[in-house]
């Protein structure tokens, strides 16, 4: 399980996270909602170890391991996956090459056998079919020239291949059409089980109709100000963040 206690962090000397307390037990899916600029992406970067996101206090452990002490790639190998709000383009690097390199790097770090080109291709095709993605996405440069929705689907494909034990999805639903939203949600739901947990960052209740969360948290100005069941998301949608803030 993911356990965050009193986590504070700053960017460029500016305090952004001001004491986050959050527990995501094994097998659960939690949603984080909150206004623009409240620190949602910052939390995802701090947890995944991005440079420039300075932890100033508190702790974060995953299955008992102090993840804040690990290199980003070690966190990845330990099973942490971040679906980026803005997936990055890697010109000239084939998507298949990237996926296979990543998968094998993680397998190697975990002491598992690496997949050869044929084994990988078989696996990738299988997962792509499940996500209704066409094969030619594998041949193209990583995210280069992908539409917004294709980029998000590519993140989900990576998740499906890397099989993390905890996934942080940062606004993976933004910019998706209705069909793509359903595909992404199905991708996440297919992973649900006792060994998978997720933090789903979103602005829209709509996604949570498809991925029904165990808990919903509201992040405002660097703090979790309210937590509740799936009904909290509906409440927010109806009343806005102002009401939550007033009550808090």
């Amino acid at each position: 399980m993911l356990k965050i206690e009193g986590l504070t962090a700053e960017v460029d000397g500016k305090a952004i996270l001001k004491g986050i307390d959050l527990e995501v037990p094994k097998g659960e899916v939690h949603a984080i909602m909150g206004p623009n600029g409240s620190g949602k992406s910052t939390l995802s970067y701090v947890l995944s170890g991005r440079e420039g996101y300075e932890v100033t206090g508190g702790s974060a452990t995953f299955n008992g391991h102090d993840i804040l002490a690990m290199e980003p790639e070690e966190r990845a190998a330990a099973g942490l996956f971040l679906a980026f709000q803005y997936p990055v383009e890697l010109p000239g690097v084939g998507n298949a090459t990237f996926l296979r390199t990543a998968l094998n790097a993680q397998r190697k770090a975990r002491g598992e056998a690496e997949l050869d080109a044929m084994q990988f291709l078989k696996l990738a095709r299988e997962r792509m079919k499940a996500l209704s993605m066409s094969d030619d996405m594998l041949k193209r440069g990583v995210n280069v020239g992908f539409s917004g929705g294709e980029k998000k689907r590519n993140e989900i494909l990576q998740m499906a291949l890397l099989k993390p034990s905890i996934a942080i999805l940062d606004e993976t639903d933004s910019g998706l059409d209705i069909d793509a939203l359903r595909i992404v949600a199905d991708g996440v739901n297919a992973m649900r089980g006792p060994d998978f947990s997720a933090l789903v960052i979103t602005h829209y209740q709509r996604l949570l109709d498809y991925i029904v969360p165990d808990r919903v948290h509201v992040l405002m100005a660097g703090r979790i100000v309210k937590s509740g069941g799936p009904e909290l998301a509906k409440e927010l949608e109806a009343q806005g963040y102002g009401a939550v803030q007033a009550a808090a």
Partner: peptide, 18 residues
């Protein structure tokens, strides 16, 4: 770009190489 690669499990040097 480097962070994206490292988040997927590549070391810094592997990321640069890629």
């Amino acid at each position: 770009q480097l962070f994206y690669c490292r988040q997927r499990g590549l070391t810094q040097e592997e990321a640069v190489g890629l």
